[in-house]
Design a protein around this nucleic acid. Structure first.
Lengths: 294, 294
DNA sequence: CATCATCTGTGCGTTTTTGCACAATCATTG
DNA sequence: CAATGATTGTGCAAAAACGCACAGATGATG
């Protein structure tokens, strides 16, 4: 008579992704399972929730209504999750952190090692995803973000300003220095503008040598001597295979934030983690700012 | 990380019933399953939801919070169920009716047979429960109720006034008539007042012979000649083994209502059913009113 | 127009979940 | 204080749900 509650999640994700396979990926199950649960839901409420079109599932009126209800239930459930987590004032339990891949690799890893050693009862989980996960939905408890202005529903501090520079491999740098009229090969990000204008004066001759969509790949390309690219100083300066391109000023770059959900900021293990992490990252301010005295 | 939605139903029912076994009965599953799902929920949110006390499960703060959330989700889900059902304007599909046991037995059965024959595509389901099921939660679509003032969230009509009378078996009636100073043996309902005052004049001598908690049981007792009891006329007059106690006026009795949920009143198969049932029951007004011309 | 990628439907073997039956514990009652 | 009824915890077998792999179909692409 009444739809099984968990089936509504399957309906919701299928509406969101427009088909079984998208929903299946989002839910981490097989698409056949999604199909079966939707069938069950339709049988339970005695109405079709989707039109089976070639190439996807299109929600009917009833399906949209169900998805709206499921959204309400989802936010209720997320609120519960937060509220229960907020009640847990032990210095133990799970703590999920999300941070960009490369910050973890270059900066965060030793810092997390220290934290784990100091608090062995805290079960730290790391989501080194580049996607900005939704803290409100409790996909993570704490986020380290590179951002100019993080969402205002989150609380936290900007622990460091950041600057970026142009980096090349040592070999490529020598090559440039040896050339009488050097031409700069640029490695471009597909979702960024082209070559920064500021380069004009020092390096009038330039061309786009490669377009990539991922920072790790770009670093590899630079290391291989394909050309130059712009990256935050903490990345370039911590990479022994790279060196800054001379005669170019530093660029502004979004700062480093440590953030959590408002409802979680008074939870002891989260407060502890944020205090620890923020302090350690503040110590690295020269690195993020591109201050090369170290 | 986030509690499985359907597990919240188990938490809710366990809070409502104060233990595993009550929740298991309400959910129609084994108590072991309830225990396992609650364990899963607790593991998922990393907090205890119940204190395991001897004799039952007592919700913790977090458990109460979860139950509140689950209640919100339940009402959302019930609303969805109504909203989807309201969209179904076919003259087919499921239709759940709840009515008191004895109305079904004496009055409704032939009427439902006729309806089923006329609308074979409507899948009629009958809950002959004495409990007043919650139509808002969509436990039933249509209710036939004996009531003075039904809940105002429901819509429908009072199809008949009702009166009650005192009934005895034929044998017991002869016995009374034969006695010079007859003493009336009364069969009393445990949740009702005692013997009606109005009996005083005609039958000054009386005593309580039996107390029962169920109308079917009471009818059996009257048939067996144990004594007299008051019951609605449609019950006594349709029972060939019973006869009215003479010299007593009829009693007022709550009327007969045919009711549905506001959101369902325009659904065609429900509208059809209510029109049909109300018309047929109106034809039986003399029976309900205790008019013995038939 | 051929090819490739993507999506949905279906049968089968496996894993997970569930129900059942029994034991243990506690409150209630005669 | 013994006995009864109710409740929860646990091991095992049955049942249900799930993932996997393949087939068919559609749409995009060169």
């Amino acid at each position: 008579m009444m739809i099984e509650w968990s089936d509504l999640r399957y309906v919701l994700e299928t509406v969101r992704h427009g088909g079984l396979s998208g929903a299946a990926r989002a839910l981490g199950v097989n698409h056949a399972t999604v199909a079966r649960r939707i069938q069950a839901a339709e049988q339970a409420c005695g109405a079709m929730l989707f039109d089976r079109l070639p190439g996807g599932y299109a929600p009917t009126e009833a399906g949209l209504e169900a998805a709206r209800t499921a959204e309400a239930m989802e936010s209720a459930s997320a609120g519960l999750s937060l509220s229960i987590a907020a009640r847990d004032q032990r210095l133990s339990g799970p703590l999920t952190l999300t941070a960009p891949q490369l910050i973890v690799e270059r900066v965060l890893a030793p810092l997390l090692a220290e934290f784990c050693a100091a608090h062995p009862d805290i079960d730290l989980r790391l989501l080194a995803s580049n996607e900005t996960l939704n803290l409100s939905q409790r996909q993570a408890d704490v986020a380290i973000r590179i951002s100019d202005a993080p969402v205002d529903t989150l609380v936290g501090t900007r622990v460091a300003e950041q600057r970026a520079a142009i980096y090349v491999s040592h070999g490529y740098a020598r090559q440039l220095a040896a050339s009488p009229r050097p031409r700069l090969d640029w490695i471009r990000f597909s979702h960024w503008p082209g070559i920064p204008d500021d380069l004009g004066e020092a390096w009038p001759e330039r061309r786009i040598a490669l377009t990539v969509d991922d920072m790790v790949a770009a670093i590899g390309a630079v290391r291989a001597g394909i050309g130059a690219t712009r990256m935050p100083c903490f990345l370039g300066d911590t990479d022994p295979a790279l060196t800054r391109l001379p005669d170019v000023a530093l660029f502004a770059y979004p700062g480093v934030w440590v953030l959590t959900h408002r409802d979680l900021q008074r939870v002891k293990r989260i407060e502890t983690f944020m205090t620890f992490t923020s302090a350690r990252l503040r110590q690295l301010r020269p690195l993020f700012a591109g201050d090369q005295r170290n």
